[in-house]
Simulated scan of single mutants.
Amino acid sequence: MTNTALVAAAASLGMAALVAGCASHGPTPAPAPTQSQAQAPAPEALCNAQPAQAAVGQNSTASVVESARARSGARMVRILRPGQMVTKEFDTQRLNLEVDANGRILAVRCG
């Protein structure tokens, strides 16, 4: 074997070793949850409009709206006024209060 052939063979082996060192050895394991993640509170209950039906017929004052939200177990509340454009996505944590032009609550539903 000539010196040139020997050098080429050694270079090929060296490159193969470098490429093998860069290869992945499988997925990296997920880190263990921290104490705060392990003790995260359970998600809130889903909205239930039935207990909030008492708000129908009342004016949509801040206290009435908050009371309806709390009774339903919803995380948030949205007031829907006549002709108002609204998004159509369904949110299981949202209470919708449909009101008339005077702010009187006409309907209570989740979503």
Rank of each mutant, 00 (worst) to 15 (best):
A101T: 11
Q93Y: 07
K88F: 03
P82E: 10
K88S: 11
G73I: 04
R78A: 15
R94L: 13
R69G: 09
P82Y: 09
S60W: 00
V65L: 01
L95Y: 00
Q84S: 10
Q84E: 15
Q84W: 03
F90S: 08
S67G: 15
E98M: 06
A62Y: 02
S72N: 11
R69Q: 05
M76G: 14
V77S: 12
R81D: 02
S72D: 03
D100K: 12
M85R: 14
V99N: 06
L95F: 01
S67T: 15
A55G: 03
G73Y: 02
A62F: 02
A68C: 09
A55P: 00
E66N: 15
M85D: 14
D91K: 09
N59G: 07
N59L: 15
A68E: 03
E98A: 13
A62G: 12
V99M: 04
L97Q: 10
L97G: 07
Q58T: 13
S63I: 08
T61I: 06
T61C: 09
L80Q: 13
R94F: 00
A68H: 05
V99S: 08
I79P: 01
K88W: 00
D100Y: 02
N96F: 00
V77F: 00
A70G: 00
V64Q: 09
N96D: 07
S67P: 00
D100P: 07
E66D: 15
I79F: 02
S72L: 04
E66L: 11
R75L: 13
E98H: 05
K88A: 10
R71P: 00
Q93G: 10
Q58W: 02
T87E: 12
I79E: 13
Q84H: 05
R69S: 02
R81C: 01
Q84A: 14
R69K: 15
V77P: 03
G83L: 11
G57D: 04
A68F: 07
D100A: 06
V77R: 05
T61H: 07
R75H: 03
R69E: 03
L95H: 02
R78L: 09
G73C: 04
R71G: 10
D100S: 09
V86Y: 07
Q84K: 06
P82N: 12
D100L: 06
M76K: 14
Q84P: 04
A101K: 14
N59I: 04
A68Q: 04
R71K: 15
T92Q: 12
E89S: 08
A68D: 05
S63M: 05
R78Q: 15
S72G: 10
A55L: 01
T87W: 01
T61V: 05
Q84D: 10
A55E: 00
V64T: 12
V56G: 03
V65T: 13
N96E: 03
S63D: 14
L95C: 04
P82F: 05
R75S: 13
I79T: 14
I79C: 01
G83I: 10
G73S: 08
A62E: 13
R71Y: 00
V64S: 03
V56D: 04
R75Q: 14
D91M: 05
A68V: 07
R81Y: 06
S60C: 09
R75G: 14
T87P: 04
